[in-house]
């Protein structure tokens, strides 16, 4: 027989809550980790190896590289490779693994599915940018050809994923772009951001935090071994060269394409100023983008600030005869031209 004691009751409660928290806390909970380890099977290992080989075709890749890159145990990787050799997906050239034609096609298919999922997540769900990659990484192993086809057609057979990477077609066609890393531009060059690499994650998050968008035009002001400085859409950005290397740009040479310096983000508009909308950044996607267009945030529309919020955000803009309030993260994706 036990007796009730509030201190013990409270202690038991605290212990139970802590256990539940450790097990189930989002993403890092033990339960999720165990489940994901439990779920790894040959298919996933093989597909992950294929992707590594595909993305690093220029390099010579051995088993050590794979162990480092994928974080699986040696034995898992070796048994995966054995199966791949049996299935005629890869062969050894000395120490290095090389994709066969079949292996190449398989890898391309996974890349396609991965990018389609990222596009889907960007257009049709509310997941944050930083989560797309991780979810697509999981989904790519679970999607068969038929589902991939439906996914593509429900998205209108898109050509690019949200990071600006081309999505291979089902027949393996892939759009080519002559992009160069931002760090490769010279001072005074003008470029347009077409791709932001989401790998490694740490650098990607840093770029996101700076509010740098795909589709933005930029002008390099300074480029040396310690930093790359550029002007874009009314603001100046300073990045370390290794960060800048993860941003891919197209060099803009034709004078008609070059935006004037007074093209800035809507967040740069001040009360009592009027401006003309220049367009909406590609970074605004899905329903959010369509809603903005429907509401009249289209190229050529006149816009001014109608009301300022006591908290500073959102701001109410006057556009096409109506007052509409937008939050800053939306306004940041609308480009305007000040008179």
């Amino acid at each position: 027989m036990y007796t009730y004691n509030p201190i013990y009751a409270l202690l038991i409660f605290i212990v139970v809550s802590m256990v539940i928290f450790l097990l189930f806390r989002p993403n890092r909970g033990l339960f999720w980790k165990i489940r994901s380890i439990y779920r790894i099977d040959d298919k996933i290992v093989i597909e992950d190896i294929l992707k590594q080989l595909y993305h690093n075709e220029a390099k010579q890749i051995g088993i050590n590289f794979l162990v480092n890159a994928l974080g699986y145990r040696d034995s898992t990787i070796i048994s995966g490779i054995d199966k791949m050799i049996d299935g005629n997906l890869v062969y050894f050239e000395g120490e290095h693994l090389t994709l066969t034609e079949e292996g190449h096609d398989y890898a391309l298919k996974i890349v396609r599915v991965h990018r389609l999922w990222e596009r889907y997540l960007a257009e049709k769900t509310g997941f944050d940018k930083s989560e797309w990659h991780g979810i697509a990484e999981r989904k790519e192993h679970e999607t068969d050809d038929e589902e991939a086809k439906n996914l593509a057609s429900s998205l209108g057979n898109p050509i690019f994923d949200p990071h600006g990477d081309p999505i291979p077609t089902s027949s393996g066609k892939i759009a080519e772009l002559d992009s160069i890393p931002l760090s490769g531009l010279k001072v005074g060059d003008i470029g347009k951001i077409i791709n932001i690499d989401d790998n490694p994650e740490l650098i990607y998050k840093q770029i996101l935090a700076e509010n740098i968008h795909i589709g933005s035009q930029l002008k390099v002001l300074e480029n040396n071994t310690t930093r790359v400085t550029f002007y874009s859409e009314g603001e100046e950005y300073r990045l370390a060269p290794i960060v800048a290397a993860n941003i891919k740009v197209l060099k803009v040479n034709t004078p008609e394409e070059i935006l004037e310096d007074n093209v800035i983000r809507l967040t740069g508009l001040k009360p009592d100023e009027t401006a003309i909308i220049e367009g909406i950044s590609k970074e605004s996607r899905g329903d959010s983008r369509r809603r903005l267009l429907d509401l009249g945030f289209v190229k050529g529309a006149e816009i001014s600030i109608d009301l300022v919020n006591p908290f500073g955000e959102p701001t109410a803009y006057f556009v096409k005869g109506t007052t509409i309030a937008l939050r800053d993260d939306q306004a940041r994706k609308i480009l305007i031209k000040k008179d």
Partner: peptide
Amino acid sequence: SKTLLKGEVSTFNLEL
């Protein structure tokens, strides 16, 4: 908004 619902579509506009 950070857990169960983070995948739901989210847009914002407020007409006055």
